[in-house]
Amino acid sequence: MSLSTLTKPWEAMSYGFLDGSAKRELRRKMLKSVAVPGCQMPYASREVPMARGWGTGGLQVSLTLVNPQTRVKVIDQGADDSVNAASIRRFIARVAGTPTTMDTLEADLIQSRHRIPEEILREDQILVLQVPNPEPLRPVQPNMSIARQMHADADYGRMWLQLYEQIVRSGRVMQGASYPSLVHGRHVMTPSPIPRWDVPKLHMAKHLTILSAGREKRIFAVPPYTRVEPLVFSDVPYKVEEHGHLTCTRSGTTGFFMNEIPRDDGTSSFEVSDSEWGVKTIRARDGDGESRGETWYKNGEMPQ
């Protein structure tokens, strides 16, 4: 018996880029974060061939969860074809041999930055969100060790201070993205910089959401069928962006989250932010078959 029969042949890297111990750690931390919804779990964020802050947290989670059968979809600001989304998708496919897709309904694993797709996700799908700043208390408590204690005590009074200030200064809640939300009635989390439009989609959702911050080394999760309630004053109701009446200039779809595109004459046109939804709408319009699934928002309104 020689040493070569006991060892595996040389490979450029482990399956899915991360080594076994890194994946094991991430899996354990994911289980932990699912067990305590919304609670931030520290983990040892590994180096991936991408700069911190470009979705390394989400990428590590995706690399840990994939197997050769997992269909992967990557979204950047709603679009599948932006540079960042395309390179992450290609990277995952290259190191893990996974099939990729742009169709939300076909995907098993969706890694996303800043958006949740407009079509309702199912129980068998996992949404991975990239998080730049996981600590909702940072604006009101710069000392992170005290912030951790506040999480432990569920001492969230100060979170409303932020909203109070915004209403005082601007007459309404200005928090546009990463709207602080109470998960399972216990932990306040920042749901990554998704717009207010997307926060109600997390409430009692069928799918598992994992949020991971690579630079800040924190992971947290919203398990399926978990309450996610945005923090509000009792006399100031939660409002999503007023996009319900806007129509996409390219696909003609109405009632979804739009990107505003300024025009030369000072007005602006709108384009649906979830690019795949736009593509599907165009396909349906051109008679190439209906592939659109059921959406969270109906006629620009989120049914209660």
Partner: peptide, 27 residues
Amino acid sequence: LLMKHSSSGNVAERLLVAGERSFATLR
């Protein structure tokens, strides 16, 4: 005091910690 938050916010924080959640009352 929280030096960079508004003065009224500083006072309101006290009520927030005690559990008050109505903006009009806080103000």
